[in-house]
Amino acid sequence: MIVSILDNDFYKFTMQHAVMKLFPKARAKYQFINRGKHVFPPGFAPALQDAIAALAKLQLTDREKSYFATTCPYIDPTYFDFLQGYRYDPTEVRVEQQDGELTVAIEGYWYRTILWEVPIMSLICELYYQLTGQIRQPDEQVIATATQKIEQYGQLGVTIAEFGTRRRHSYTVHRLVVQALRAAGEGTFIGTSNVHMAMRNQTRPIGTHAHEWFMFHAAKYGFKMANLLGLEHWSEVYRGDLGIALSDTYTTDVFFTQFDKKLSKLFDGVRHDSGDPLVFADKTIAHYEHHGIDPRSKTIIFSDGLDTEKVTRIAGYCRGRIGISFGIGTNFTNDVGLPPMNIVIKMTEAYPTDGHWTPVIKLSDEPGKHTGDGKMIALAKQILDIP
């Protein structure tokens, strides 16, 4: 199901590199959240535990190391030496099952545990379909569907990246989809968030950072400084590379109050991950214009539950006003005739150096997507003046 240590999202490696440089003693906890209320069949937990244990055998090969280092020269060579010696430690993960309910908890040094989220989610999805006996469409249909979609996006004149590792149907489907996108998407398909799939298909790994980067910064520095210091630290590590800023960890409105003129000029653009994309586009354009920056020199990466209809609507609204690109996940890697899973794994607590365990939260632009401790959510809203 997972055959390479690089079968993970690019932003996990870029964040791991940054965590090692800046917060090597920090610890973290993560928790599985079953948003879709899926009922897991008997024996699911032992099967998942076995699959997690198998990840301990993975290691970075010389060929993978050479590809990764050559493709990403802005990452320190010492990091690739570290990654070659890194092994997943299954003792960092606890899996339990009570009837149809599944519990997955992760705890350890942040620089180590940061790599668990994506492969565990993909394992949960693949095992769920296997153990519930659900039959997907044949390979030919999977390829045809992906080909049709990328051709439609090509007709729109937009660029598309594949972001579907976490909730893919299976490794096989993911592989077939990226191959189809690469074959039929010249000029449209620009890469994948999955480093292993990027290497297999000689395309670019795409990504920067995730919500947990800013969630940790809130635990260490407070909610009012989380976005600002999170981006300052990111720029210290990457010096202008990997310049797309994630905007909705504590709502977009709060983000733009902290995304000052210096950061607005330094970063290439922002990523939209929740809320109305057209409202977000208007806010982003207004923000850049307020700081005397031509919005057409910046880019919005849209990545929230996209399909052809949404991309068409967004492209028509934004074209000529600001640069745009799209990251599409589940609609590529789990469009196989079965209901896709709705699951996440989120950081729940952080332990900064010389600190203490602190609950961490995420305040999405969609209230239903808020995650974390209720008391901490209420406190953050009060501090950040969020209704």
Rank of each mutant, 00 (worst) to 15 (best):
C318P: 00
F302T: 05
P339D: 11
F256R: 06
V336Y: 02
S264K: 02
I301V: 15
T251N: 04
G337E: 11
P295R: 08
E309S: 09
S297H: 11
S325A: 14
I300V: 14
E309A: 15
L278I: 15
F332S: 01
G323V: 07
G320I: 06
D335V: 01
S297A: 14
G269Q: 04
A315T: 12
F302P: 01
D276Q: 09
A315F: 09
A226F: 03
T333S: 12
K261E: 15
R239P: 02
V336C: 11
D241H: 15
D307K: 03
N331L: 03
I244A: 01
N334H: 12
T257H: 08
N331P: 00
A226L: 02
F256K: 03
R313P: 01
F259S: 02
L228P: 00
V254Q: 07
G243I: 04
G323Y: 03
L263I: 08
F302H: 11
Y250M: 07
T252W: 01
L231C: 05
L306C: 07
F332K: 00
G337F: 10
F223N: 01
L266W: 13
H233L: 12
G230M: 03
A281Y: 06
I324M: 13
A245R: 01
T249E: 10
L263Y: 06
L278Q: 13
T284M: 12
Y238S: 04
S274T: 12
L246G: 01
D268R: 11
G230D: 00
W234L: 05
D268E: 12
A281K: 03
T333F: 10
L229I: 15
K220V: 10
H272C: 06
R239V: 13
L278V: 14
S303E: 07
L228G: 00
G269S: 08
L246F: 10
